[in-house]
């Protein structure tokens, strides 16, 4: 990385400056969609400059998948291979949902920077910086999902739903994570530091992840716990993803997940936008 901080500053050229000022006519206002995509591009650029930030997105799923399959597979399902068939869709969900916490962390970090003032003083659709950032995060989700799916296939996961089933499963998870990231952006604007956002995000996710049907068949649980697992939206998501990846999805399961995603977005996207607009 370059450590040079000062190039002997080239003088400002008065002629070039006047020319630049004279040619700065305002172009027609860009559409909301194009502005969101531009903010998404900003997210991509940040990944390009600091690719290390993807390490936990890519490595953590690998660790979890390998560890759970081979450590608990025999005990839980009799054989590691059988357990992988059960576990993989749930691992996909877990990996992507954990990644959603970063939406809140990134936004929290961003808010401390002067550039946010500039964005907020631009004549663009107000929530665009948020929508763009969350769209950019969807790239992370896609990456985490791909890692899990590819590794699962290598380890012996049989996708009975074929390519269509796998892709549909990934899309379902990404859609849900997109909705969930609005919850974390809200948290990101309420809490003071990025580490507080990270900690509270993971604290909230852990019970949702473990008290779901990701790791075990809920019918083996005590009835109270089984009820809890049954109402957990993460369980609904896992059930739907298992369904589509096995080529046996019920429209009801998928519909429920999409309805929950829409509900999360409908509540938390406006809250985030409101908090963002009121910051200052």
């Amino acid at each position: 990385m370059s450590t040079v901080t000062d190039i002997p500053s080239a003088p400002v050229s008065e002629e070039a400056l006047n020319a630049a000022l004279a040619s700065g006519q305002r172009p027609p206002r860009p559409s909301a969609a194009s502005v969101c995509l531009t903010f998404g591009w900003r997210g991509m650029l940040k990944i390009k400059h600091v690719p290390e930030q993807l390490i936990d997105v890519t490595l953590t799923p690998v660790l979890f998948l390998v560890m759970f399959t081979y450590l608990f597979g025999g005990a839980v399902a009799g054989s590691t291979d059988d357990y992988l068939q059960f576990l993989l869709p749930g691992m996909l969900v877990q990996s992507v949902l954990f990644t959603a916490v970063y939406s809140g962390v990134t936004l929290n970090t961003d808010m401390t920077k002067g550039v946010v003032d500039r964005f907020r003083s631009l004549p663009v659709w107000r929530p665009a910086p948020l929508v763009g950032a969350v769209l950019g995060d969807a790239v992370r989700y896609g990456l985490a999902a791909t890692v899990v799916v590819v590794l699962g296939l290598i380890l012996g996961f049989e996708a009975k739903g074929g390519v269509v089933g796998v892709v549909a499963g990934v899309l379902l998870v990404v859609a849900f994570a997109f909705a969930l990231s609005w919850v974390f952006t809200t948290v990101g604007l309420v809490l003071r530091s990025p580490s507080a956002v990270m900690n509270s995000g993971f604290m909230a996710l852990f019970p949702l992840i473990f008290l779901s049907n990701i790791f075990v068949d809920p019918s083996t649980l005590p009835s109270v716990l089984e009820t809890v697992v049954g109402v957990n939206p993460v369980s609904h998501l896992v059930t739907a993803v298992r369904g589509v990846m096995a080529g046996a999805a019920s429209a009801g399961d998928i519909g429920l997940v999409l309805a929950e995603a829409v509900a999360l977005t409908a509540v938390f996207a406006p809250v985030t936008a409101r908090l963002y607009g009121a910051k200052g």
Binding site: R26, P27, P28, P30, S34, T38, W41, F119, V124
Partner: peptide, 9 residues
């Protein structure tokens, strides 16, 4: 980034 946000294509 700013040029695009302001409508330059």
């Amino acid at each position: 980034l700013l040029a695009r946000l302001l409508g330059y294509k």
